[in-house]
Design a protein around this nucleic acid. Sequence first.
DNA 1: CTGTTAGCGCTTTCAA
DNA 2: TTGAAAGCGCTAACAG
Lengths: 343, 343
Amino acid sequence: MVASIEDVARRAGVSIATVSRALRGLPDVAAGTRDRVLTAANELNYVASPFAARLASGRTATIGLVVPFVNRWFFAEVIATVEAELRQAGFDLLLYNLGDEDGRRRFFDEMPMRKRVDGVLVASLVLEDAEFDALTALHRPVGLLGIEREGFLSAGIDDVAAARAAVDHLVSLGHRRIGLIGGDTDDPMRFTPPLHRRDGYRHSLAAVGVEPDPDLERLGYFTVEGGRSATRSFLELPDRPTAIFAESDEMAYGAIREIYRSGLVPGEEVAVMGFDDQPFAELMDLSTVRQPVGVQAQDVTTRLLARIAGADDDDGDPRDPAVVLPTELVLRASTQGPDGASS
Amino acid sequence: MVASIEDVARRAGVSIATVSRALRGLPDVAAGTRDRVLTAANELNYVASPFAARLASGRTATIGLVVPFVNRWFFAEVIATVEAELRQAGFDLLLYNLGDEDGRRRFFDEMPMRKRVDGVLVASLVLEDAEFDALTALHRPVGLLGIEREGFLSAGIDDVAAARAAVDHLVSLGHRRIGLIGGDTDDPMRFTPPLHRRDGYRHSLAAVGVEPDPDLERLGYFTVEGGRSATRSFLELPDRPTAIFAESDEMAYGAIREIYRSGLVPGEEVAVMGFDDQPFAELMDLSTVRQPVGVQAQDVTTRLLARIAGADDDDGDPRDPAVVLPTELVLRASTQGPDGASS
DNA sequence: CTGTTAGCGCTTTCAA
DNA sequence: TTGAAAGCGCTAACAG
């Protein structure tokens, strides 16, 4: 029913080997022959069966992308970018969404991408050694996003420095009591960011001689609601913070809402700084740290593909640089006081 | 290096056919034999090569999911749900993100999923006949999300009725001048919802004898910013609307912000109704129409898989019902006036 | 219940 | 520059 390579060969009057060569653009095919093959293929509306090709060649032209969530801004952005990059290179994207701790365990147990990808991309998970081992056992190049590890390709930002710059800005505004809304560093999904961003926050305060105050460090679980309740507890403090640094924009939105709800004005009575610069940040007049998600994703993807195209000695190459991309402080009304008038 | 079916056969002391049967759980394998095979496979850490299996069997155990965007709530939700459902069934998910009109054209031109999926899921695109034809030419079952078409599996909501119910509520509150913020019905990505939701809006008004007023129907392009500027233009009207119905929550967020910005209070001076009930809606105290995205996605996925597992006469079956799932009006402060006190 | 034997539709030597 | 032929690692009759 649907054309196979033999049909094309017959129609073009050549052997199937020649069809294969011509269609894949290999050298050593006479121009005329190639044209005839291409024409025949076109007329028959032929495309090679990827599975037959994969079986015969060992190359899958497929990348597995592992994310902990798909419905969060960062990861959605990553997926979109990687997909576009792969499509362009003629690669397929097999998506693996961990979802929860259970899904994560199943994933690393079964390694469902065994024997079906040429390379792997893992986004923003703090992996355990056993999990890294599972990836290594794939014997395929692995790219990391937002994590670094010797022997793996990676791209990311300097979370510590970025957080530090953000908090430094609050400090420069005169704030000294600065609340931190963070992710759970023991979170089952174990993101990388919480650890680093908290460090940046603490460094910044330490630099001006402020001791860490447990009352001022709350969990927000990277959700709006979490940001809200953390903020509520801050505002109930006898000596409430004058500024809040949230490790993600979403938590910052929650902070802003809660501040309004208490009859205060964000940026006026309480400054708020987020992290990410998601599209909503502008809507919320939120000062935040902009990180180039698309660039990070594109960067590892490109290098991963190059790696696959290149050597076949793919068991990890310590020379692969961990690319660190710059972030940028975006200042809006939430850290500007009266006239920046937010909401 | 990595075990093949022969290694397992040798170790278990059976033929490769028996290994194949045992591992796939086919009947007619003696319990003892099966155990030995399973053990051997385990010891060798064996998994079948999916490509060899696909080539031999013709089944790919893969579904192609086509979405216009990944970084919008609805689609992210769909992706996550479908992924989970497929994983559980042992299917792979090949993701195709159209991105823009160009990507869309390329996609339907090249049909990159030819010969690589057992079934297709298409989310919320108004497809042209030629595009439907391209899908049909795949000769695989196709499931639609948020669209209906004779001969295709589908699940969705009744957008007209849902929008109508939403606007009816505003009407019941006494509103007669109700602004509509809609999607572009000529949008290159051609969503289904804008057409239907606008109809629901118009029906509702017509039912109380209100003529459509072009000044009160604005495009919001399904973005926050679009909702904002549409609202701005409403508020500048000499006879401004007392309520706004946005065809998506995101546009409604923009409306709420813009209303605040003009010194008015949403729900008090201007009521706002959204559509979707995204997680942010609660944060924004937005009244909205809740639609069960996960349920819709799960529903088509399940039926698509059943269809694949069942008959091989897969060229479209007119008997497949288009499942319509219920929506629900969620009322919050944005339509409640003074005491529901929002923001 | 189990083994034998053809393929599945390509890619890739190797020869010509 | 091209063709013949041997697989790639499975599944699926068919026999027994």
